[in-house]
Design a protein around this nucleic acid. Structure first.
Lengths: 120, 120
DNA sequence: TCCATATTTCAATAATCCTTGAAACATTGA
DNA sequence: TCAATGTTTCAAGGATTATTGAAATATGGA
């Protein structure tokens, strides 16, 4: 992921409704959810969810497909993992203090490379 | 990290100058850099960098301390790792495809392998 | 004290983003 | 074809964010 895309992704995730949409779609899985169902889940109007979905798609974080009358959105897992990677490596320079925390509190992300760069 | 702080952090990182500041300060390490040096590195005016530094501090991503005439800023590594953790766990529901964990339970963050992996 | 340095604050403007409701578009079934 | 459903587009407005230069604040040294 290049910087431009990361900037757009961060902007996309900095809005409450859109962050909720990403969360919801990640949980929903590859089948995704129709725009109307997402709007209902988020408690916003049709035109409003459409605006935010377009923004998320522009950032590349979600994808859409038509399915009969509905337009079904799903999370783009590669983009999300690319963003996590960007945040860890590009933005945070692979700094051990940043990388040293994985989901389980165990080291991840080639800990040897990280410890070479240690300071503090 | 709670959602409110994550939203502020994403907003803070969605601006080119501010993303550059975070990168620069992470590389600079705990000693940090004076506001003037950051402004010079980013190529922006004093008042402009002050605006962006305040924004980053409000989001909790950087900290400041006075050192003689200078005000020295440094990255908040805990906040950054907290944001990475939020993105992986809370936002992305610990989804294996986002975390880059293979079916065999192999280690994470080998991002090339992750992005090559196919979707269902 | 006075001056220079380092930075922030302020006010004004420009730019961008968010929300709303109405209208338009696409699809399906009668 | 007509009507119903699901969604997007559009225009207008309000709200937030970014940029600029000038003025204010804080510090250290002569």
């Amino acid at each position: 992921m290049d910087e431009r895309q990361a900037l757009m992704s961060f902007a996309a995730l900095s809005q409450e409704t859109r962050l909720g949409v990403v969360r919801t779609l990640v949980v929903a899985g590859p089948e995704g959810m129709a725009a109307g169902a997402i709007a209902e889940a988020m408690g916003v109007s049709a035109s409003n969810i459409s605006f935010h979905l377009k923004e998320l798609e522009r950032a590349g974080l979600i994808a859409q497909r038509r399915e009969s009358r509905s337009i079904v959105y799903s999370a783009d897992y590669d983009a999300l993992s690319g963003l996590v990677k960007f945040l860890m490596e590009d933005c945070c320079a692979g700094h051990p203090r940043v990388l040293g925390v994985s989901a389980e509190g165990k080291a991840c992300c080639s800990a040897d490379a990280a410890s070479e760069r240690q300071h503090v």
